[in-house]
């Protein structure tokens, strides 16, 4: 009887642990709550939501942005740049182009399906690019492995593909037809503003591919208000809200502890 009770409790505990792990993680692209290959749970960064008064010694990473920047926010970023701060925008969908325009930059992200022969994997979008510019981000790095990047136009080139690169418009993984070989730029900069056409460099599966680059980035702040590092899961967002709100956390702890204390007190009275 007792052994069976323990077995049931153990089973329920394990099931509860699995259920907890399930509801507190997600499979959403780039989410820091995604512990899978396409999440960013393994990327060490400090998340911030307020873009004012940023530490100019750190790099601000705006990562796969999917939210527009208000004029005030763009102004804060301009002030950050003017104060010597450095911004790295990693985008491959072109969502950052409006922000780039607001920041007075001529650089633009051109979404596409860049593929290259300069690779050692069967996937044509997973290939190697060369470091062509002198930048601390790529100090000690000769090549970077990118993962389905977009081209970046304008600015001083930092990462360049080999001439055997094409925009795989028909998605068949083979160059041909109207797809012609050409060199493309996937990272460029203008002063302290750098645009990288491949946010995939920060997903869990890609972190081991370019360790020196990831190390050069530190310390890095991630703009969590506009980046896709968040999640739409209400459970995770509620837990995050509780963790970020001390009063609610305290209230919840009290709600958990008080009935137990009351129960123990009653037992003692008996």
């Amino acid at each position: 009887m007792q052994r069976e009770a323990w077995a049931v409790f153990l089973l329920l505990f394990l099931a509860g642990a699995v259920a907890y792990a399930h509801v507190t993680t997600t499979a959403e692209e780039y989410s820091r709550y995604n512990v899978g290959w396409n999440g960013t749970s393994g990327f060490a960064a400090v998340e911030i939501r307020d873009l004012t008064d940023l530490d100019p010694t750190a790099i601000l990473l705006i990562f796969a942005p999917d939210q527009p920047f208000s004029p005030d926010e763009a102004g804060s970023l301009r002030a950050f740049l003017d104060s010597g701060g450095r911004i790295l925008i990693a985008d491959e969908e072109g969502n950052a182009n409006q922000l780039l325009a607001d920041l007075g930059s001529a650089m633009r992200v051109r979404p596409g399906n860049l593929s290259s022969l300069d690779r050692d994997h069967a996937a044509p979008g997973l290939f190697t690019v060369s470091v062509v510019g002198n930048d601390t981000l790529f100090a000690g790095v000769e090549t970077i492995r990118v993962n389905r990047p977009a081209a970046v136009e304008g600015g001083e080139p930092l990462l360049e593909t080999s001439p055997l690169t094409w925009d795989d418009a028909d998605g068949d993984g083979r160059p041909g037809g109207k797809e012609i070989f050409r060199t493309a730029i996937v990272c460029a900069r203008e002063g302290n503003l750098t645009v990288l056409g491949d946010p995939s460099l920060f997903i869990n599966a890609m972190l081991p591919e370019n360790p020196a680059f990831i190390e050069n980035l530190q310390p890095v702040l991630v703009d969590a208000a506009h980046s896709r590092t968040g999640t739409t899961s209400p459970v995770i967002n509620t837990i995050a809200w509780i963790q970020e709100t001390p009063a609610v956390a305290t209230a919840l702890i009290a709600l958990g502890v008080l009935p137990v204390a009351w129960r123990f007190g009653r037992k003692r009275d008996e």
Binding site: W37, H121, A122, A123, R145, N147, R148
Partner: peptide, 21 residues
Amino acid sequence: NTSTAAHVDPATVPKLSDNDP
């Protein structure tokens, strides 16, 4: 070949042995 529109998982993509572009 685990992949999404934005990227592929390098760990699941076969390596090329005779590629010499």
